[in-house]
Simulated assay, not measured.
Amino acid sequence: MNISFEGKRILVTGAGSGIGRAVALRLSKFGANVIAVSLPDKSFDTLSEEDPKIEIVKVDLTDWNATKDALQSVTPVDHLVNSAGMFRGHAFLDVTAEDVDESFNINFKAAINVSQIVAKDLIARGKPGSIVNISSQASQAAFHDHTVYCCSKGAVDQLTRVMSLELGPHNIRVNAINPTVVMTELGRQAWSDPKKAANMKSKIPLGRFAEVEEVVDAITYLLSDRSSMINGVTLPVDGGFLAT
């Protein structure tokens, strides 16, 4: 299946590392003009070295007004990938107000803000578009020490459904993907304990974790015209975890 984004401007948040970075590089390879957004750090600086065609925007997405100022200047945008996110692992009885605020600010609130910017631009221009939100299997399954993360990703799933309902009449599709553990650099570190990894893999029918490119494949498909009748779905990329 050939997919091309020639002539399309695609904004990717959380593009400094992990899934967001891999998505930005893939979309650029497929001809898109990519606007990569992340916090200013050394890993983000290397992205433009790896692919000089990618436009870099450094901003703290938890700052609502600074984000608006930074991103309104890069429109028009045709598609959006909301990949920025964070994880704080605490047992329910140990969750703090700061845990809730920090997690929801980046995992949920930032997605609303960035999506509004992109959607309003598309509607004003009368153009179709596609938005993909990065959720998690943790939005639909409970995990120890994942209270705030599970709740924030559950909010992302419901946000995706509401956005698809309200933006669909403007020919703007909104979907989410819900990966299992993904073998990003951080993922490999977090699941390096063989016993811990074996326990999780035993719950995945395919018996393994997801590779980054497998997640990127799903995002690319949902962004593209090949998925033109898919709207409002939360797509597991989990090897069957949620089916068990």
Results as ranks from 00 to 15, higher is better:
Glu6Ser: 14
Glu6Gly: 05
Gly7Lys: 11
Arg9Cys: 07
Ile10Asn: 03
Thr13Tyr: 12
Ser17Ile: 10
Gly18Val: 04
Gly18Ser: 12
Ala22Glu: 13
Ser28Gln: 11
Lys29Phe: 09
Phe30Val: 03
Ala32Arg: 01
Ile35Ser: 09
Ala36Pro: 01
Ala36Trp: 10
Val37Ile: 12
Asp41Ala: 06
Lys42Thr: 09
Ser43Leu: 13
Ser43Ile: 06
Pro52Lys: 13
Pro52Asn: 10
Ile54Met: 09
Ile56Asn: 02
Ile56Asp: 00
Val57Lys: 06
Lys58Ser: 12
Leu61Pro: 07
Thr67Glu: 09
Thr67Gly: 09
Pro76His: 05
Val77Pro: 04
Val77Arg: 00
Asp78Pro: 11
Met86Leu: 15
Phe87Ile: 12
Ala91Glu: 14
Phe92Leu: 14
Val95Trp: 04
Val100Phe: 15
Val100Arg: 08
Ser103Trp: 01
Phe104Leu: 15
Asn105Ile: 01
Ile106Phe: 10
Ile117Asn: 06
Ile117Tyr: 02
Val118Leu: 06
Val118His: 01
Lys120Arg: 14
Leu122Ala: 07
Leu122Cys: 09
Ile123Leu: 11
Ile123Cys: 07
Gly126Phe: 05
Val132Asn: 01
Asn133Val: 02
Ile134Ala: 00
Ser139Lys: 04
Gln140Cys: 03
Ala141Gln: 08
Ala142Pro: 06
Asp145Arg: 11
His146Ile: 00
Tyr149Pro: 05
Gly154Val: 05
Ala155Gly: 08
Gln158Pro: 01
Gln158Arg: 13
Thr160Asn: 02
Glu166Lys: 13
Glu166Gly: 06
Leu167His: 00
His170Val: 02
Asn175Trp: 01
Asn175Phe: 01
Asn175Thr: 05
Ala176Lys: 04
Ala176Asn: 03
Asn178Cys: 15
Asn178Tyr: 01
Pro179Gln: 10
Thr180Pro: 00
Val181His: 00
Leu186Asp: 06
Gly187Asp: 03
Gln189Met: 13
Gln189Val: 09
Trp191His: 11
Trp191Tyr: 12
Lys195Asp: 15
Met200Leu: 13
Met200Arg: 14
Lys201Ala: 14
Ser202Pro: 03
Lys203Met: 15
Pro205Met: 13
Gly207Asp: 13
Arg208Asp: 02
Glu211Val: 00
Leu223Glu: 07
Leu223Met: 08
Asp225Glu: 15
Ser227Ala: 15
Ile230Gly: 01
Gly232Met: 03
Asp238Gln: 08
Gly239Asp: 07
Leu242Ala: 10
Ala243Val: 11
